[in-house]
Design a protein around this nucleic acid. Structure first.
Lengths: 190, 190
DNA sequence: ATCGGCATGTAATCCGTTACATGATTTA
DNA sequence: TAAATCATGTAACGGATTACATGCCGAT
């Protein structure tokens, strides 16, 4: 059985308020992008299906100069559906951490290459962390208030902690690889 | 352009030594399963393709009572291929952390439900952490020695750090949600 | 006697990204 | 004048899981 989490992701955003496909994409991109994201190829077809199943209803707002806004609003039936999902326990979190693969097979290369790889990873993670921290400052001042605010805050804290763990690991790994390099050097020069 | 990381995951394992599809699956399952995994539906067809492309070569070992072992060995060409990949910098790590979704939409439910959800998540993470720590003790004594050993060790350290970050976050989140609950209680009873 | 491990593999189906197509408006 | 934002969507492709099929052996 496939679980179809994108469905619930999209339906979930609509519990926070009505919005368009474009809005939904923006929400992810500007908040928890590194931990959950959806593409248009997923969003638009799913919105249509959710509407057919009466979990959301669609209204069209005309604009001039800009394309119409297709606004989706969650229905009572939709709220029931997502509540059911929210109450089922999360399955095991399996991800694909490419950096680990590149590390594990690193003995194929020199330690210097692995170090460079991790430094690059580290640079990215530093940027992500900074972005998350900027977002944290903006929250409350920003566009998301109401009862979901403390929940969103906790989500950002999650991102922050995980990012920090990555960074601390990178420091440790680089140090360990430098030691390895020194030892290898000894064998060769002695 | 799609990147096809499974290819490299499989080819990469074979840099550590020859093995069967079954061995490859086992390697992931018993080491970094939470951070990278492959299914048979991915492994067997890919091994065939890698053989057709001369990145690996296949030999068959007959056994009695058990099915034949189809052993794949990486070729020089295969080693070149994976080195190229190892040298290209990692892209942004995007995952799908279901727990965050269930948290963000948590205001649909009561705080108690969110707490229960996170406690369940925490229990799982505790188990994962323990398994990783057991593996760390076994390494060296176990089946993986040689030059890749320090790399594998670092991979396990990664898992450990990330798992700890999850656990610390869970503690924080539960505490924050309990506070929320108290405040809500005040409003209702006052 | 049943369950887990060893060992192979395929088919169906779905998940998900990327690329494409369109076009006005605002900002740098 | 070029690029970003707003806004819709689809088609093609490939990634990845799940379920199924088969069968012996050893341990509990």
């Amino acid at each position: 059985m496939k679980r179809n989490r994108s469905r619930y992701a999209i339906l979930g955003i609509l519990t926070l308020g009505p919005g368009t496909g474009y809005d939904i994409k923006k929400f992810f991109d500007k908040s928890v992008a590194k931990f959950w994201n959806e593409s248009y190829g997923q969003i638009y077809p799913l919105l249509r299906r959710l509407a057919a199943e009466k979990f959301v209803k669609k209204t069209v707002q005309k604009q001039d100069g800009k394309p119409d806004r297709h606004i989706y609003t969650i229905t009572a039936k939709g709220r029931e559906e997502i509540k059911r999902w929210l109450l089922t326990p999360v399955g095991p979190q399996i991800g694909r951490h490419e950096i680990l693969l590149k590390l594990i097979f690193g003995s194929e290369l020199g330690a210097a290459d692995s170090i460079r790889q991790i430094q690059h990873f580290q640079k990215q993670q530093r940027q992500d962390l900074q972005q998350t921290e900027e977002l944290m400052d903006q929250i409350g001042t920003g566009y998301l208030q109401g009862p979901s605010k403390p929940y969103l805050k906790l989500a950002l804290r999650y991102g922050q902690r995980v990012n920090r763990a990555y960074l601390e690991w990178a420091d440790e790994a680089i140090a360990a690889l430098k030691d390895l390099q020194k030892e290898d050097g000894k064998h060769e020069t002695d």
